[in-house]
């Protein structure tokens, strides 16, 4: 049994492969911890209520809404944010596909979209269009970049090819 709070307590998070040490109240969401305490502002706060998907990050590879996740729950788990996808300054193939297919306009929903797509392809490397639509259904886009998003995910899937 591990007890935290109600005041700030020290926790260690593994974010994009690096350990991060933060002092947080248990009530602090993972999203606010990433954005405010760690300066990782890629994940966006749009609704704060699980209604949009802009705050999507991966926790142990699973796509979740970080606005409905507490930071304290994530001790010992591997968190991937959008900042963690590019390697040595080279965009991840999914990110490249989003640029190539103009799968964004204002870009505010985009980090969440890319991570949702990442989780989708990890589970289903060769999705059909219907599977892409179903898998991306948890990420709204007010600018209406949806057609580009579908194309980007399908093309990224094709590029990476079937995985073993």
């Amino acid at each position: 049994m591990i007890e935290h709070g109600p005041h700030k307590t020290a926790i260690t998070l593994e974010v994009n492969g690096l350990p991060q040490f933060v002092d947080v109240e248990p009530r602090r969401t993972l999203l606010d911890t990433l954005r405010i305490d760690l300066g990782l502002t890629g994940a966006k706060l749009v609704c704060n209520m699980g209604n949009c998907g802009a705050c999507t990050v991966l926790v142990d590879g699973v796509a979740v809404y970080s606005c409905l996740t507490l930071a304290v729950e994530c001790e010992g788990k591997a968190i991937t944010t959008i900042e963690g996808l590019a390697q040595d300054g080279v965009l991840h193939p999914l990110q490249q596909a989003f640029v190539q297919h103009d799968a964004l306009q204002c870009g505010f929903c985009t980090p969440g979209q890319v991570l949702a797509a990442h989780a989708l392809l990890a589970r289903n490397p060769q999705p059909t269009e219907a599977e892409v639509v179903a898998g991306m259904a948890g990420n709204l886009c007010r600018c209406g970049a949806y057609r580009g998003i579908i194309e980007a995910v399908l093309s990224a899937a094709q590029q990476t090819g079937p995985q073993q």
Partner: peptide, 21 residues
């Protein structure tokens, strides 16, 4: 032509007003 600011927007590098610290 793909957006010249596309990379900034897909990588989380783009700082919006909300992100200013």
């Amino acid at each position: 032509a793909p957006r010249i600011d596309g990379a900034a927007r897909v990588s989380g590098e783009a700082r919006y007003t909300y992100d200013v610290q």
